[in-house]
Every structure is written in C-alpha cells, then in structure tokens.
Write a protein that binds this DNA or RNA. Structure first.
Lengths: 140, 140
DNA sequence: CTATACTTGCAAATGCTTCTCATTTACATG
DNA sequence: CATGTAAATGAGAAGCATTTGCAAGTATAG
C-alpha cells in the first residue's frame, strides 16, 4: 500500500491539489472497491478507516478528482451517482435491474465504431457513459 | 393535428390511462420538440398552450408515459432529466458540452454488437442509454 | 518555523423531483 | 343526458442527493 500511496500523492500533486489524508483515504478506498460505490457508501467506508472524513469532503474530493480526470462519475437514471477510478480502457456498464449489481463490459470494437461515427459528424468525444439495464436470462 | 390527437388518445387508452387534455398537451409538445426538453422546459411550453398544466402534472404525466413505454427519460450527469417520445430505433445521444445541444446517433452496428456481448454474458437488455459528451472539432 | 492559500467540518441551502390532500374530471352506467 | 366513482390535477410541502458559506485547521513554500 506504500507504493500505491506515493502514486496517489503524485497524482494529486500533478493535478495541482494538496495531498490530504482525506483525499488519500478516498482514493485508496475507491481503488479497492470493485463495486462502483456511491458517495454515501464511499463515505461509510472512508469513515471506518479514517474517522475524520466528512460527507462534504467526500463529495468535494470526488469532484476535484473527477475534474482532474482521476475519477469517473456514473449517473444512472435518478439513482445516486456512483464512482470509479478512471479506467485505462473505456468500457460500458451493465446494471442488473434485480440485484443492482454492476458489471463492466469492454469492447474495443464498439469504441472504435463509436469514435468513427462521432468523428464523421465533426465532433470529438470528451467523455461518454453507457448504462445498460439488464436482467439475467432464464436458464435455457 | 387531428389524426395525431386520436393516435395519442388511443395510446393512452391502450396503456390504461385516462385521456386528459393535460396529457394530450404534454404528448403533443414532446412530439413536436426535436431538442429533448427537460421537465421544466416542457412545463413552460405546455403552459403557453394550455394554461391549466401544473408542474406536478408534467412530472406525473412523464413518468406515467415512461412506465407505459411511450416516453423515454434521458439522465445526463447531474443535469435535469430530458425526455423524448420513445424512438422506433434505438440510438445514442451526443451532447455538445459547449452549447448543450443534443444530437442523435443511430447505428444498427453498435446495437447489434452490444446485444451480442450482453447476450454472451447471460443477460438480456431491459433498457439502455448512451450519453456522449462531445465538442466540435476545429476546422482542419 | 511562519505565513498563507488551500481544505475541511458542520450545518444550512439548493435544485430537481415526488408526494399529500382537497378538488376536479373522465367516462362507464342508468 | 344525468350521475357515481375512481383516477387525475393543482398548489405547495416534503424528500433526497448534492453543493455551499463560513470559521477553524493544515499542507506546503520560503
């Protein structure tokens, strides 16, 4: 975790942000979370590690990190936003409507196709989010 | 507009909903809007046509219609939701980050690919939304 | 070590959306 | 066409996720 710490700290510095233990805590927790937590869940988990983290700071940290490109926010319908460390490769997200579970779906083919289409319209992609509500198929 | 009216009325009846002039107004306005208006914009426009439409009713109408599958809600980041008459063919949405303008992007190739990938994972698609933030490319 | 600009905590504020409840209305029935 | 009743509406209050104001705390340059 030590190597990871210095990595996070450097990322913060690169983004022109001060290295505070609250930010380090949030980043560490987010990195360890495979389930794309909401701000609320993140706050709960952060609090267990570092009692001195407030709700407001979780939100402020997340938007600072998002602006710096280190974190991505996933808005799904009218549900609370969920967050993930910015992924190296772009991917879409499936949400199981019955369980709420979130699954990642990577496809370089789709990405390529999409980039080409957007390009043809004279635009360049700034950011993108695909959220697909799915249901498990009944066993055949 | 007369033919369209009876069409809307029938759609409402099919969905088990009563035909009220408020609902007719909202549907007509939404049908005529090419810009995917928010509930607020829809309310403003509806009010001009029919003074007796309230904010609450716009929201209630939209969710009733959404539940009936006649309307689709687009949630984009933390911005207010926008709405469109449920499209015949699935398509993605681009939002110009500078102007807020929304453009539709249809690609049967992407849809097919996506369906296949989701299918492979053992799921079936219930609904999907892709929102791509874009910026106009500088002229070359 | 000190200065200072950036951060934080707390609580209040905000903004979109939903709900409550009294009143009105659509429409099946006589 | 009159009437009963369940559904729909208007106005405003309530709810919830997120943001903000301000006083106090703290990272970091010098």
């Amino acid at each position: 975790m030590c190597a990871q710490s210095t990595e996070f700290a450097q990322a913060l510095r690169d983004a022109g942000l001060r290295v505070t233990h609250q930010r380090m805590t949030v980043m560490a927790i987010l990195k360890d979370s495979v389930d794309h937590p909401s701000a609320d869940e993140l706050f709960e988990r952060a609090r267990k590690v570092d009692g001195a983290v407030s709700f407001a700071t979780v939100y402020r940290t997340l938007s600072a990190l998002e602006e710096a490109g280190l974190v991505r926010k996933l808005t799904f319908e009218s549900d609370p936003a969920r967050f993930e460390i910015t992924p190296a490769a772009e991917h879409d997200h499936l949400v199981d409507v019955d369980t709420g579970e979130m699954i990642e779906l990577a496809s370089e083919d789709i990405n390529r196709l999409r980039r080409a289409l957007v390009d043809d319209l004279g635009y360049e992609i700034v950011a993108q989010t695909t959220l697909i509500r799915v249901r498990k198929k009944p066993a055949p």
